[in-house]
Amino acid sequence: MPTLLERQRGLRDWVLAAGGAPPLANAGLHRDNILGGLATVLAASFPVLHRLVGEACFTGLAQAYVRHQPPREAPLSRYGTGFPAWLAGQEVARQLPYLADVARLEAAWTHAYHAPEADPLDPAALTALGDAVEDAAWRLHPSHRFITSPWPVDRIWRANQPDAGDGAVDLGTDGDTHLLVVRPAAEVLLIRLRPGAFALLMALGAGLSLSTAWNNALALDADFDLEHELTGLLAVQVFTGVELP
């Protein structure tokens, strides 16, 4: 006689496996509800992906992912963080090479949405540093994520929002897309940055000094305008603090 734990594990293994004899009567209904429910969770977290590939393909992908990586913790809002990486290895991602990067963007969006709150940098504290700002360490908002893609994933994302029109998206050939995803207040912001500003922000986020970050930006873009880009970054409130060592 199997123990309760053995029976539960047997049912779980059967739900996650494709095929085999059901261990219980009506186990198929239970399996379909588990896979269907989790596919719905993934569709809520990856709505653009869902629109891009359509209902049937998305459900197939989602259920295959659930079988590959079932939830390991109770909060379903965090389920699917590994979905983009898994998706990159699927046949459909070979057909639509931008797909996995769109999924990474949606995972970043969900991360930003659920990230902790943080007060923005006090502009007076920054000005008060004067020239000592050179030695300061900058803190970025805990919700921030950086996305780089060879595809215009921000345009694909916007064209597939519920309120978007019916227009087509041109993948174009104008090089890499650099995105900042951050939620300084209630709304998640999706901001396309020039390569120099992206390099500057990544360097500051890694704890480098402003002059080192500036040099990184200048190395990518000789015309990089620190004052202009810093104004933009301060306005979106991606920084939460500056500290002298």
Binding site: L52, G60, L96, A159, T173
Partner: peptide
């Protein structure tokens, strides 16, 4: 559902240009 995995049929048809 596995049969549909490699058959995208959504708005991806509207995304074109460049190299895919």
């Amino acid at each position: 559902p596995g049969a549909f995995i490699a058959v995208p049929a959504g708005t991806c048809a509207k995304i074109a240009g460049g190299s895919t």
